[in-house]
Write a protein that binds this DNA or RNA. Sequence first.
RNA 1: GCGGGUAUGGCGGAAUUGGCAGACGCGCCGGACUUAGAAUCCGGUGUCUCACGACGUGAAGGUUCAAGUCCUUUUACCCGCACCA
Length: 824
Amino acid sequence: MYNKSIDEKWQKEWENNKIASFNKDNIDKKYYCLEMFSYPSGAKLHVGHWYNYGPVDTFARFKKMKGFEVFQPMGFDAFGLPAENYAIKTGIHPYDSTMKNIETMEKQLKAMGAMFNFDAEVITCKEDYYKWTQWLFLLLYEKGLAYRKKANVNWCPSCNTVLANEQVINGECERCSSQVTKKDLTQWFFKITDYAEELLEGLKELDWPEKTKKIQTNWIGKSTGSIVTFDVADTDLSLDVFTTRVDTLMGVTYVVVAPESDIVKNLTTKEQENVVNEYIEKCKLVTEIDRLAENREKTGVFTGSYAIHPITKEKVQIWIADYVLATYGTGCVMAVPAHDERDFAFAKKYNLPLKQVIAKKEDVRDNKNIDVVYNKNEAYTEKGVLVNSGDFNNFTTDEAKTEITKYLKSIQKGDFKTTYRLRDWLVSRQRYWGAPIPIIYCDKCGIVPVPKEDLPVKLPYDVEFKPDGKSPLAKSPEFVNTTCPHCGGHATRETDTLDTFVCSSWYQFRYPDNKNSEKIFDTEWIDKMLPVDKYVGGPEHAAMHLLYARFITKVLRDAGLTKVGEPFKSLVHQGLILGPDGNKMSKSKGNVISPDDYIEKYGSDVFRMYLMFGFSYIEGGPWSEEGITSMSKYILRLERILDKINSYKENENTSYSDEDKELLFTFNSLLKGINNDLELMQFNTAIAKIMEITNALYKYTQKDDESILNTKLLKEIAVLFIKVIAPFMPHFAEEMWSKYGKEFSVFNTTYPVEDEKYLVKDTVELAVQVNGVVRYKIVVPTSADEKEIEEIAVNNEKLKPYLENKSISKVIVIKSRIVNIVVK
RNA sequence: GCGGGUAUGGCGGAAUUGGCAGACGCGCCGGACUUAGAAUCCGGUGUCUCACGACGUGAAGGUUCAAGUCCUUUUACCCGCACCA
């Protein structure tokens, strides 16, 4: 009887026989199947991991049986905050807790029985991995893609530390819920913005969920418009603004600069100095919560300076206001209160002038009074024509955008410009548990990268990692103090560590060459193994990990280390398994399902079968206790049926009865569906079809007189069926395969495909509709053409009642689908 | 506010892409076997109706011989972005 001990038996055999190993000679048939690696935080493998790894293992085994040389590695994204926070709470060192967790999780992964290639394992917190993460950092540094600058970062005043963006939940610290403020710190950045356009363009060719592509598209946020230069009156300063609505240029009545901009102090006049400084200070105190508040009232102050309109040469006031973002565009906008809602609100509050420059075509033609009263719907209109705009009057908005920019260009006051919302990637973390940034600061030589031959810069074990606002590594003199690789003088090390997303941005390249101690990876080999053919993981990584990994891949390509431009050719996001109560599983809600208990009770195959059958894979849904017991019952029933068939003596029946033919038809047509479903990762419908085959086999064996059964045929089908179920229930199938006296392993056999000759039937049943409602069924020869089908359908006795006082006006015949008779 | 998605029996979910709605499973009802339960097996199970039949895929319209599927409007929930000039 199938249970956990059968799991263990075959797991041992698979390991001994290296069923998961990759045969390099077979590279032409390689299939790189990758699941997002797991994060060994305080917990064990949870249902989410299983839902990711179990079904995808079924897919991988299917591909293997389809003749592919499958590479399915697994590893651990082992650096990062959760381990460190756990350490802070318990006092257990992150290295120790992480290693212990990895050990537990490896055991669990093996108990899952997935075909993971553990020879290819990577663990990002180990020296032989993070050495190359550091190497990668130096590569970016060499290429000018890693740079240091002062940045305004998230700061938690209670934890006394910086926070990553993803740790800020609605303006609060994820750990202590204090309000997050901003602080200026000098940080390392990766210049991902250099690749903005390519990252956007590259999406087109990817087989990814549209939603994920959309998220990346929005994240990159391309926007095309113009740059316009405003000179500052009575100075030699000038302000560049970015706008997508340069057609409204003649409606500019003031200019606004972000309060954080450096230029502000040069713009501020003596008289305004106090108000401006006061305002800047006030902005710094605004919490994230307030900043994100909806419909927040706009505030700002006048700098005392004036900008000169590039075309009219009119003077307009320059203000500072925090509704202008320092980090987008040029940090400076031209305000057109008549045609922009935000500018309107601001202008109204501070009594700034309004000037309408776009009006409806009809109003212009009819010479209507076009004095403005701001109307949200009309203000945004791009279908109007220009008014009050001098030479540009009567241009449509589209024409005006081009013509005005062209004109500005000719007087050197502007140009076409594309901007992106994407910002450079901040990779510094004031944290202990990460890869040290391989940089040395020398008083004489400045920033000096650690020579590559000196890598890795080891993360010291013995460090006080509790946070107090300084990087923990700064508190280790042995780590900090070093000699300059250039001049040999005294120098200090960078004490920040790298964001863990850096570690996970390139792991897909390391798996196939994980033991390479000479190079980050072997280019020739990697170009054969990459890209990943199927990547599966949660949708929460849509904008971060998946974008970073694409960026780093392009950097590696431009450095000549690979030809691959996109790491993940095809991507699938599995859904989320919720608690039985329909809520997200969480300890506080007490609705967490622990896989281990179920594996113990039912075995791995039952658990993964339930996960595959109970939900649409990309949707997920709430856990059901009944669901898993019913799956256990199903497998036991299947076992009884297969055992019974196995016990039959094989007879010498050579001809097929109608029942035999029916069984062959059912089996082959469902087999066809299973193959299709698996290619599309539609596990639930594939299993439904497996159950239908089970039911058909069961029904067939119900005649208890063995002698009238075609047991030869039955056994042949059973053997094929065991192959069919193998990817779904690997342990159980291997057990049955062995019971049927077949040679180990079922996974070295070929996955069955339907035999077309059993799918051909002499006759086919068609539904006949009268005026769109099914009224009766007809049986027609498969070979019958539309005319013949129509004849059979129309001449049916059952049609008569519907023809009383009526006649047939039309007959639609869809071959092998349906007949619809329209009567009037 | 902008963008994307979802909505089908008591429940999880199907539906060859416009062609017999509810596959498969759970649950429930009835029956067999049992002293009894568990397990197993057989039959039934969208709603209304005694029935003929009618109605039925969040709601309202529309296109079509035919709509869960296409179009318009609308509601609820989920996700992403959020003063992006």
